[in-house]
Structures are given as structure tokens and as C-alpha cells.
Design a protein around this nucleic acid. Sequence first.
DNA 1: GTGAAAGCGCTAACAC
DNA 2: GTGTTAGCGCTTTCAC
Lengths: 334, 334
Amino acid sequence: MKLTIKDIAKLAGVSTATVSMVVNNKDERISASTREKVLDIVDKYNYIPNRIASSMVTKSTKTIGLVIPDITNPFFPEVARGVEDKANIDGYTVIFCNSDNVLSKEDAYIDMLQEKMVDGIIFTASSRRTNISASLQRVTVPVITVDRVIPNLSNQGQIVVDNEVGAYEAVCHMLAKGYKRIFHITGPLTSKTARDRYNGYLKALESNNQQPLPNHLYEGMYTTTWGHNAIEQLIEDGHDFDGVFCGNDMIAVGVLKGLQKHGLSVPTDIGVVGYDDVNIARLVTPELTTVSQPKYEMGYKAAEMLIKMINNEHNNQSEYTLSTELIIRNSTRT
Amino acid sequence: MKLTIKDIAKLAGVSTATVSMVVNNKDERISASTREKVLDIVDKYNYIPNRIASSMVTKSTKTIGLVIPDITNPFFPEVARGVEDKANIDGYTVIFCNSDNVLSKEDAYIDMLQEKMVDGIIFTASSRRTNISASLQRVTVPVITVDRVIPNLSNQGQIVVDNEVGAYEAVCHMLAKGYKRIFHITGPLTSKTARDRYNGYLKALESNNQQPLPNHLYEGMYTTTWGHNAIEQLIEDGHDFDGVFCGNDMIAVGVLKGLQKHGLSVPTDIGVVGYDDVNIARLVTPELTTVSQPKYEMGYKAAEMLIKMINNEHNNQSEYTLSTELIIRNSTRT
DNA sequence: GTGAAAGCGCTAACAC
DNA sequence: GTGTTAGCGCTTTCAC
């Protein structure tokens, strides 16, 4: 039998207001003796306040929604962890949703979160989301988009990372190490992220006075399988190459495996660079040179920014840019 | 300005009871015309029902809590995904919490979840949790423990996997492939999981008429670093060995790296087997032979079982055992 | 078929 | 310093 604030009030011989105040530490005006009395009863009877009921009146659930494509994608656990850590510090709880990059699922989750009266939402939208949807339109709470911007969405903060610079530095490094014919294998160029990386690649070539090779671009998916297929195709196509800059680490791992299979040695014959610095990057052989994204920080900052917006402490900086770091390991020459 | 059921009722010229009924599809008794009228208004004004308010009266939040050690540990994303998928199918939402295996954090989360009136909890407890805590004692909703049992907790369902058999099969396979001097590098033996695997290892030796080697056990942590250190120590200790059965894949990857560094070839000289079949297992070189745990299924089943308990449809089977599968790849001889 | 009204457990004015 | 009370938005019984 669950006790309510009324029961506790009766048992302690005080009013519900008093109980409420001591339970919520708003008890400056409560005498020490009654506070103690109440606390005793609370303890003794294992009273658990019903936050749903308080939410009703305070209009705050201390809950935020996190919508990501797929927690199973090694990029997201760290982001999620960053979100949860910051949320937890500030007394928020996080509801997590996997959208699989499916727009209808995203919308359904957004609606659900609104119904559950979350105080705010952190959202990594599908790259296919080219405009605001009805569900998004209904959103009245603040939204932070991570790594993906939603056009025309108001009340939106953004966490972005400078992918162009990240890619630029990576390719410059390859060039500096003597790789001369570098191809780019990437995921779908529908996302700004992917395009930024591609641009960085192009700029690096340019500033090193290199023409992009004909057919230098292999566009596919962000998977190991695609990386593997792409490199086989590249070899089959008879291209003369000595370097591959990959759109992410999963692709790079596939490339590594493909190269290995064909007896091409990395980094001696071919240089390979990934993107993200997912845990796997350090575990494959050779260890992968890659562009590290501050995944945990992205999540943490997103939560921080969101909570500020929730509390209307939001400074007018609605965009926060994090930078990448080139991690040099053994898939490029020393 | 957020609309309430009252506003909609007024706009549609009906009572709140009517609106409630049509919004919740409890509208058998409502005439088609009023239903339509209401639905029109709902649509037109983007009415979003406040589930917090309904929770107050229905005493069900359609929310479950998921407490795991760390989503960043590659074992858990799949479990979490399984939970979320099943929850979503049944209209539940999941709050996720990372406890880092710290008892006090676990307890704090358990309390928080209770305050938020979750309908049930899925919990992978720290292996150090040797008894029920005050927080756990306060729990009145059903709890499913995954891979870890909590002593003396009532209202508990359990998802377990048969680790002894998994380990047994793995070690038998190694023996069958001609590895004769197999060591065991594991995480902390405080968890039943770890002990079961160790027992499986022992039984495999026994049923193949092998005495366990002296000092065959290296107990440490479930990390790549520990795997690496352990194998170096093993080598340093001057042991003559040709096989290593590891407590999990992370350890195995560390072992692989250490062996590589010392110029020992896998699988020719040394056979290595991991446990879990985490995504990394397929990506390292050589690809890791390992015991696959049905991670996604564990989460899915946990959610399924929990939801049944919530709905009192729980059949009396409070324990569900899943089995493992030996995945033979290239870190053992063919 | 539909409406009136009680009440879920709590907080926050306001009164004393 | 503490109590009284209105009301948060909804569901559900019971009348009509």
C-alpha cells in the first residue's frame, strides 16, 4: 500500500504543505523539530513522493528526451552517456529513443515525448529530414540538435562539429606523409556532415596543388560492408591509388579488411584514414589513424545547453561548435 | 499556448468525458458524428494529450526504467536496443540510467525511477551487490534482472544465460582443435557469470581427462588493457601455453594484441577464444572465435517479461534462460 | 450517447 | 511557523 503525502501528514500530525516543504528542502521556514518529526515518519514508512503529481502542478517533469538513430551504432553510446551524465547531475532523467533514421519513427517519438511532457529534447535527426514535420511543428519545448540541423525549427540549439576542418587536416596529413593518389570512400552525401568532410578533402588537395583524381569519390553507406565493397570495386576499376580517406571508421575497417585480403599492406603501400575514432579504431590491426569527434562532449554539451534553455538561462549563442582532433596511429606512415 | 482537454471540449461543443473517450479510442459508445467533430478539432488545434495527467488517474505511466552499468561498454547497446524495441512496440517508453556498477548510484536511480512512477524496472546490477538494499526494498513495481540476480528481492523476474555451457563448449572446441595447454584470463570472479564460465572451463578440461594447469587462472578486469597485461605476465611467468580462453571479448582483443607484439601467431601457435561476440570480435585480425550471447534477445525478452508482469499476465516462470552459441572464426585452428 | 463531477497526489498562494 | 485550499489535466463512475 503506497503512502501519499496526506498519509504522512496525518501520521506526523502536520499539514501536507509542511510535508511537501520538508521533502523538497524548501523548509527554511519550518522549525527544526517539525522537520525532524516529518523526516522520521518519511523514513519510517518509506515514503516515496509521487513526482508525477508534482509535475502536474509545477509543470516540469525533470525529464528530457533523447532521439538518436541507433544506440547500436558505435558512435552513439558515448553521446548518450554524455547526455545522461549531465542530465543526472542536474536531476534530470532521460528517455531514450532509437529512430533508425526513419522519419515516421522520429515523428512518433517526438509526439510521444511531448505527450509525456518532457522538458526538452535532444535530437539527432535523419539526414533525410529536409524540412520540419507536423510533429516537430507541435514541439513547444526546447530542442537541441546534435550533428544535424533541422531547417525552420524554432527554439533550436545546435551542437555541431567542424567536419570540414577535421577532414582537411586528415587529408593534409596523408599528403604530408607522401600519399599522392588519395580516394574518398564515404556514406550518403545527403547529410551536411558528409558533404563537409568531402569539402575538407577537396580543399586539402587544392591547398596542396593537387587536382582531384577522376572518379575519386565512392559514395555508399556508413558500414564496414560498404567499405569492403567499395575498396574491392576501386581495385577492380583498376585505379592506381595509394591512399583512402574514409567517411567514418566503420568504412575504414572494411577498407582495411579488403586491402588485407588483396595482399596490399597498410600503411606501407596504402594509407587509410577513418573518421570518428570509435572504440574499434584502436583495436583493429593496424590501428587506425582517424579524426576524433568529441562524442561524449557533444552529448554533455547538448544536455548542458538544453538545460540552460529549459531554465531560460540561455545565452544567445544557439550554436556550439566543437572541434575534432587528428589521431595518428598506424594506418598511415610515420 | 497549450490546449487542454477542456479547451477541446469547449471548441467541439462536447464534454471532456467525450473528448477523453475519443482520444483514447474508448469510443464504442460515441456516435460517429461527434467522434468526427472532436477529431477535427483535435487535428486542427494540434491537441496533445497530457499523459502525465492521465497517469495520475490511471496509475500507469507506460514507462519502464533501464539500469545498466554503462552504455559505453559494447555489451550493452544491443541489450538496450532490445529493451527499447519491445517497449516501443507495446507503447512503453524507457528511461535509461548508467550506474557504473556503483551501488550508491544504482540505489539513487532505483529511487528516482520509483518517484517517477515507472511501471517496472529492468536492472543489470553490479556484481558487488550481494544483498538487497533499502532502495530495492522500497520497490513495489516488478523488476527484471538481466544476467545478474539480486538476492532476496521479491517480485523479480530473471533473464539468465547459460554461461557454464557456453564456456564448456568453447573450451571443448579448443581441445578438439589440438590446443593442449589452455589458460583462462578472466574478469572479477565476484560475479556469478564469471564463476559459471570458469566452471565451464574446468568441466571441459575434466571431461577431456585433463588436469587444470598450475596457475591457469588470471583474474582481473573485463578490459582490453587487462587482457594485454595478463598475457604479458603469462609470458613473463614463463608458462608454456598454446591456448587462452578469455572471460570476454575485450580481454581477448588485448590478448591478441599482446601475442602479436611478442611475435606469437594466432591461431597457429596459440588459440584464443573470447566471450560475448561483441561487434569488435568480427573486426579484429584474426577474427575472434567467441561465445555469442544473445544480447538483443536478452533485452527484448526482459522487456517482454516485464510487461507481462506489469499486466499481471505473468506465467509463473520467473526465470528465463537463454543459450549461447559458439562462433568459430579465425583465432582458433580450423 | 453524452455530461457532471469527484478525485488522482501534489504545490503554492494566502491566511492565520 | 504552519494550515487551508484551489487547482494542475485528466479518467471514470453514475445520472440522465
